[in-house]
């Protein structure tokens, strides 16, 4: 019941936030000095042609009318046509979204599964050789540039050892998309070959993205656990003889995770940004690669569409983090 109230409360804020995002995307694209009409018309167009195209695109209308039209179009799923691929932007984005989401979500899961236990152990064995070693690894993990690390991984594992694919998402064309998430599609089709192939292709990009993510998670979990270990409730639970493992992995961990979950939300945003680079290196057919191509070819509609989708995903992740936070920490519930 409380959780439901919480979810509804957070959902109420979802729509104004998305509207804000739409406004930002719209106005940024309209303060850019370039004239889309001139761009569409081509180099040798007469002023009359440009004016005609401007009228056709609705660019001669006042800004607020253009904004309302923009929102109407978005609500209908119309993000315009990409001048690069010639296809509707919305279609392009939707076909690429699963690739990026799959990569990002798997990265988050892997980074959490590695980072949270290491953070706890690091805190419990504070100032041991393990803690020091982890500190070096985490600082390195945060400092290393991901495109460089990605290339190193390719050189070692794909080129020299030949145990991982160099790039791409799958061999050949991949399964007929059901959800577009290859792992899920493979499970639906119950095709272990596809599943294995998809996972195999994911190893290096996930490793590249997971290193800094896990480093952040280790550091925040460690700090949270140390903080909780100093608390009065741990003193009390110890004094009452609660088993140590229960105190650490149940009572301490849940308190420590409050900070970690917030970080995981932020990491998601960083991963989306990082995906642009990593997808380019691994030739991963996701949003990042699409965005890079769109920017390089001044494909306005595509850039706006990507910005909107990335922003919306970030808002959704924040919503989920807020809800999780409320579920972990009952004092947050309002």
């Amino acid at each position: 019941m409380k959780t439901l109230v919480l979810i509804v409360n957070r959902l109420i804020w979802f729509f104004p936030t998305v509207l804000g995002l739409l406004a930002i995307v719209f106005f940024i694209s309209h303060v850019i000095p370039a004239d889309p009409a001139a761009f569409v018309a081509g180099e040798n167009a007469t002023p009359e042609t440009i004016a005609a195209i401007r009228a056709r695109l609705g660019l001669d209308q006042p800004l607020h009318i253009q904004f309302v039209r923009y929102i109407e179009a978005i609500l209908e799923g119309d993000m315009g046509r990409s001048i690069f691929t010639g296809r509707p932007v919305a279609e392009d984005l939707m076909s690429r979204l699963p690739a990026t989401l799959e990569l990002t979500l798997v990265t988050i899961v892997v980074a959490s599964l590695i980072g949270i236990p290491l953070g706890v152990v690091s805190a419990l064995k504070r100032n041991s050789w393990l803690d020091h070693a982890l500190r070096v690894v985490t600082i390195a993990g945060l400092a290393i540039a991901s495109f460089w690390f990605a290339i190193l991984l390719q050189l070692l594992f794909s080129m020299r050892l030949g145990i991982t694919p160099l790039s791409g998402r799958i061999e050949g064309w991949g399964p007929e998309p059901i959800t577009g998430f290859y792992v899920i599609d493979a499970l639906i089709l119950w095709d272990m070959e596809i599943l294995w192939d998809a996972l195999h292709h994911m190893i290096l990009p996930v490793a590249t993205l997971a290193l800094p993510a896990a480093a952040t998670i280790v550091r925040f979990t460690r700090a949270g656990v140390l903080n909780a270990l100093e608390s009065n409730y741990v003193l009390y639970e110890t004094a009452m003889g609660y088993p140590r493992r229960l105190v650490i992995w149940k009572y301490v961990l849940r308190n420590a995770l409050i900070g970690t979950v917030t970080q995981i939300g932020l990491i998601f945003g960083i991963l989306l940004a990082g995906a642009v680079v990593v997808e380019a290196v691994f030739d991963w057919p996701g949003l990042g690669l699409f965005a890079v191509n769109a920017i390089l070819s001044s494909d306005y509609n595509a850039v706006m569409g990507f910005t909107l989708i990335a922003g919306t995903m970030f808002i959704v992740v924040n919503l989920v983090v807020d809800i999780l936070q409320g579920m972990i920490d009952p004092r947050e519930t309002r």
Partner: peptide, 27 residues
């Protein structure tokens, strides 16, 4: 042995500040 046989069994504890001795995130 202290944790399993003595503390919370034979010898128990009532803390000074009950508001911080309870774990805040569990019922």
């Amino acid at each position: 042995a202290l944790a399993s046989e003595v503390r919370g069994r034979e010898i128990v504890y009532i803390p000074q500040d009950p508001s911080t001795a309870f774990n805040p995130v569990f019922t």
